[in-house]
């Protein structure tokens, strides 16, 4: 098992390094120069060169990348090219809201998906199944840029229950979490249904029934527990995606998360901020998925032996 965990962590590091390197090269290759964006067109060549030099952008790419890695090892993430703020300050202001929204969205997704998935599986081909899966289909089909404003219109404008957008108190979290959570719940509930249906046909479930165990016990202890394995993988992927920043939802709700920061930095060609954001996003993705793999390995010995 230890070998399995070490190999997963090792591959995680390679993936993170690869992602950071590729993004570094790509962001430098696309058209658009941060110095031009910062100075405008009125600056002289001398000013542009001075700024390029002061930002270290006149060095060869490999040196810039090495400088970035060196800073990373020394926990110095550098400064934003545009605002000159330390990147740690920019990131720390965004990471909290991102984690908060991720957790809240997951909670919403669990609350909706589990009962819905189980209900659909236990009532296969009945009205409840059709209803639950229609709801799920609706959740998958409505894009967040539409779901968000619809929720705002209903809950904020008509009912006045929650603020329209922004991050203030707990109530401001509910609508963005609902927007993200319902989409995630739709996927999860379908997965739970499919997985549970498969498990319910297994021999050991029949044995449990023959032993006279209660229906609730069979479902909760024997079926649902085993049905969760594929769901864990999906949740791992979704957590990664949520931590990466749900850009559309963040924009609609003016939520100060990592996704918005990344997009803004890309638009301004703020290389150091883009690099750190991508590093964080890829790390969160890889860490969550590595943990998922490890948990999966713990739960199912066949995987770690394969």
């Amino acid at each position: 098992m230890l070998n399995y965990i070490i190999s997963r962590i090792f591959s995680a590091f390679i993936v993170i390094f690869g992602v950071v390197f590729i993004v570094f090269m790509l962001i430098h290759m696309v058209p658009g120069d941060p110095v031009e964006v910062m100075l405008g067109e009125s600056a002289t060549a001398i000013d542009r060169e001075a700024l390029r030099h002061s930002l270290g952008l006149d060095k060869p790419l490999w040196q810039q990348f090495a400088h970035f890695l060196h800073g990373l090892i020394n926990f110095d993430l550098g400064h934003s090219l545009h605002s000159k703020k330390p990147i740690t300050e920019l990131i720390s202001a965004r990471i909290g809201p991102t984690v908060e929204l991720t957790l809240a969205s997951l909670l919403v997704a669990f609350i909706i998906a589990f009962p819905l998935g189980v209900l659909a599986a236990l009532n296969k081909d009945k009205f409840a199944d059709a209803g639950a899966m229609s709801f799920s289909l609706l959740g998958v089909s409505i894009p967040n840029f539409l779901m968000g404003p619809l929720l705002i219109l209903f809950f904020s404008v008509f009912l006045g229950w929650f603020p329209v957008s922004g991050k203030s108190d707990f109530s401001s979290l509910i609508l963005p979490a609902l927007t993200l959570g319902t989409a995630l719940a739709a996927v999860l509930s379908r997965m739970i249904r499919a997985s549970l249906l498969e498990i319910l046909n297994e021999d050991y479930i029949r044995t449990a029934k023959a032993k006279g165990l209660s229906r609730t016990r069979i479902i909760v202890i024997h079926a649902l527990r085993n049905a969760l394995l594929p769901v864990i993988t999906l949740i791992g992927l979704q957590i990664g995606a949520l931590l990466a920043g749900a850009v559309i939802t963040e924009i609609v709700f003016s939520w100060p998360g990592l996704g918005q920061l990344t997009i803004e930095a890309i638009q301004k060609r703020d290389y150091p901020v883009v690099q750190v954001c991508i590093l964080l996003i890829s790390t969160s993705y890889v860490v969550v998925n590595t943990l998922t793999d490890i948990v999966y390995g713990l739960l199912d010995p066949r995987i770690r032996l394969a």
Partner: peptide, 18 residues
């Protein structure tokens, strides 16, 4: 000074008094 990128949301926030 609050950044609200989406104009629809900006309008709704004004109407709601936010």
């Amino acid at each position: 000074f609050l950044k609200v990128t989406n104009p629809t949301v900006r309008v709704l926030k004004l109407m709601r008094g936010e």
